[in-house]
Design a binder for these strands. Sequence first.
RNA 1: GGAGAGUUGGCAGAGUGGUAAUGCAGCGGAUUGCUAAUCCGUCAUCCCGAAUAGGGAUGCACAGGUUCGAGUCCUGUACUCUCCGCCA
Length: 427
Amino acid sequence: MLDIKYIIENKELVQEGLNKKGYTKIINLDDLISLHSSITKLKTSSQAKAEEKNKLSNSIKSASAEERPAIIAKSKELGEALKQELEELDAEQKKFDEIMLRMPNMPSPDCPVGPDESGNVVIRKVGEIPQFSFKPRDHVELMELNDWGEMERIAKVSGSRTYAIKNDLAQLELAMHMMVLDKLRAHGFTVIAVPSISKEKPLYGQGYLPFSRDEIYYMPADDVYLSGTAELILNSLRADEIINEAELPILYAGFSPCFRREAGAAGKDTRGLVRVHQFMKTEQFVICKNDINESEKWHQTLLKISEEVLQDLELPYQVLDICTGDMGAPKYRQYDLEAWVPSQNCYRETHSCSNITEWQARRTNLRYRDNADGKVKYVHTLNNTGIATPRALVPFIECHQNEDGSVNIPQKLRPYLGGKTKIGKNV
RNA sequence: GGAGAGUUGGCAGAGUGGUAAUGCAGCGGAUUGCUAAUCCGUCAUCCCGAAUAGGGAUGCACAGGUUCGAGUCCUGUACUCUCCGCCA
């Protein structure tokens, strides 16, 4: 959410931001601003009525018995008029709120400008793309060869886009999370395991609603949703609080099962572990002061941590600076990390690192008291993947495979796999 | 699932239907000076206003209702705690 005063005072800048993000058909600034001015007028006039009514009410106590009936009648009359005006105000306010909930964050002036993913910019590529002296297998073949999965059987039980993994691969998945959680803890993060069940409100707080209802599992019997990321839960964990500045920054390493309907991805990545309905994610989430230099610093730190994760996993990757048209509504700036997938001969997303500035905090009403001036301000929030599995297993087992189908385990991961240097049926 | 108790500001904590006490912390200011203390103001959102002048509206978990007037009375909902039952 944006500040309406900011929008009014910086109309041209905001319009430019809308253009860059591709929201010109969704948001009409003139409508929004005229709604706001009509709301302001209604507020002014209804408040004058409320003031008069309060004065009348307060005068009753000291009025004589003869005076009272007239005052009460007058007050009742005013009350009716006030009620009507408040209903009018409420209707206008609802229209206004609906538009404001769809108002995207403004992109950073440093963001590449582009209409869609074609406008994303590769910032750097790290690591050597593996060259195989044999014909490498794709991850599904490796799973079959090593007895690591039950992909066909589980589809009959749980439906398409689900996965069941076995033996070393199942433990490898958990090992990755353990490794990343340890790393985040060493960076000062609070490890927190959170539910995957969410009420509706946090979805608005995160900014997933009202944009993408189709993507979310909904359980009508209990009126709850399944979370697609721990970011959803962590973003609302402190909602409506006024945090003491001394507590900031708050660093969460959230772990949770995640659920996504993948409604918009029909036909994409239907084979294997890349795009499944349920997965596990360790998430980095930061709440910091309302200072763009500080949140940009944290954005870089989060990016660096996830690069370290891929380096520890010894995976070649590239860093993308996501362009204005490909960023989601909540984002001010976004970097994606993509790891190399040999079978697809391209990089595939493993991490998504975003600075949301105060856009989410305005929705969750999450503030802190700034010690410098004693003022209450909205915090900045940031999020990044720590590791998401089984997606990350795909580049991992494909890049580290040997000719016999076994998979090498990088040094940093071995402590989490009982010291194994290699996994597979033939090991 | 059943019964009961509760939810007031950043925190703590009063509040017989008639203007939300008080303490602590934070912020601003004043005063006295030995590692601090005291006093005053401020300390949630919004509106009028050029205003950092001064007014005003709203805010006691949320949503309604009764009333001239609701933190207080009534109804519903959420959450927390205690006990019982059932289950993993």
